[in-house]
Amino acid sequence: MSFFIAHTVHDALTALSDGARPVAGGSDLVVGARHGKAPLPPHLVAIDRIAELREVHHTDSGVIIGALVTHHDIEMHALLTTSYAGLADGSALVGSPSTRNVGTLGGNVMNASPAMDTGSPLLVLGAEVELQSLRGTRRLGIAELWTGPGRTCAEPDELCVAVHLPAPAPNSNSAYLRLEYRRAMEIAVVGAAAAVTLAADGSISAVRVALTAVAPTIIEVVGLVGGTVADVAAAAAAAASEQATPISDQRASDRYRRHTVGVMAGRAVQAAARRAGGEMIPVPLNRAVGIGAAS
């Protein structure tokens, strides 16, 4: 058993190449080990003190979110909560205030749970992950990263250093909603994110929808085309229910998941369109509409 605290990316990469596993907030890794999900890896490198991975950079081509940026950072970030609202909708739902303060975006992405709350928003926003090792750096589309529940295509010596989001097109925005049975300390029963771009007449010219907790990984709904908001929302709901391949477990049956993921997808499209049209719907969307709303 060894535990090494890295202060630079290079230190961390060296430890990874020597066989250590990274731990960021530890809210998946350590909690999972305590629950007997998987034993704690024998060699750990703590990456949470690498300052450069805690930053959010706004560039001409979009935004670069360091792997150690926490869910709390995201839910409070002026740019992310407005221009990338779907991502902030997801981060703002994670666990409780304390979970959001320790849990990182990199940890959420690399943990690769099909129920992760930032997954479908990142997918519809066209996110890429940046992976680094002593061997070099590569960027890949986030959908390519996830290969199964808890599995990614990253090599053991690769560190996720950042998530890149392209600049949103004009008149576009995003939204994420999840089905939850209570308003804190919850795990998505199902969820859906939508990113839409509006045409001058207010109809939807481009749309992407992705689904949470209805397949071995986060999945994107295929075959959606533009149209009126109502039509696209209805089509997204139907396609989501059809393309989902949910399991039955103690949280929900497959039938109920298949139905409700459609409801979430339809509502996510509607909310993304309202935001794209300039309406301010506060983050998280769950508290503003439908099931989790305040009144």
Binding site: L179, E180, Y181, T260, V263, G290, I291, G292, A293
Partner: peptide, 8 residues
Amino acid sequence: DRDTGVTR
């Protein structure tokens, strides 16, 4: 919420 059965 009639579409999901969630009660608050």
